[in-house]
Amino acid sequence: MPKVTIDGKTIEVPQGTTILQAARMIGAEVTPPAMCYYTSLKTSGGYCRTCIVKVSKMSEANPNPIPKPVASCRTNVEEGMEVLNYTSPEIVEARKGVVEFLLANHPLDCPICDQAGECHLQDLSYDHGSDDTRYEFERRKFKKIDLGPFIQLHMTRCILCYRCVKVADQLTDERVHGVLNRGEVSEISTYITKAIENDFSGNMIDVCPVGALTDKTFRFKSRVWFTNPVSAHRDCKKCCGKVTLWYKGDEVLRVTGRKDKWGEVEEFICNECRFEKKQTLDWEIEGPTAIDRHSVISANHYEKIVEPSLFKLNDIKPFED
């Protein structure tokens, strides 16, 4: 089993482990942020470039450094590899650059976005961004579209992480949405006349790191931090039936997969559990869900994010539907 050292901490991991996975095994203090990689989705990762690290020593056999930063989510560890993440000022700086690019075209509508409070991009800009954006041009805008009766796509917020496309490709039988156009004007879109009707399509909502794909059945629009997450399960023929119920008072506002501390769902759930079981009676309650993801929900520093200079350029206006 190869041994790898990340920011001075060494761990032994199975052959074929990526640098990112090895970092997660060591702990959050050495783990780079990951906006597009998703452990359970094959070929995910490599796109967003937030997880870049410096390989200062390739391996015992080849002790040279890799000249350019690498995507830790798509680079396997080798025996004796040495990696610099937060201990490399160059990487910290480069990541700021990447975050700035990701935010360049992102709307500044956090106060009215459903994802606020559990948005990975918000976390990212708070933790890894610089205080200011230098982008002064009009941002890309798209119309909201419905992907079938349950899911809404608000492309304006999308960071093109490709996770939802991988869900559609790998979890559902007939892929009906994908990426249209190229380059800066690429967009997630659907085969217009067909709705997304598939038992597992709802998982796109859970994998979306931002508020681009949202649950249309989320009953009363409410800030996540006013809701209480509760773990529950049911006997389901289609999926594992293990979910998180999000309560306000005694009403179930929405149902999601259960997420681990890295914000990834542990097991995918079916659309029936997600969209149709909104009564407490439908579920066996296990108890409150501990949110241990390092996130603005738990840290509750949401206010801090909205206020500073990041948002000074545009007024925050609700987007028309």
Partner: peptide, 12 residues
């Protein structure tokens, strides 16, 4: 093929 596969390519 699925129509989306054609759209994806034609628009690229």
């Amino acid at each position: 093929l699925q129509p989306i596969e054609v759209y994806e390519v034609a628009s690229f």
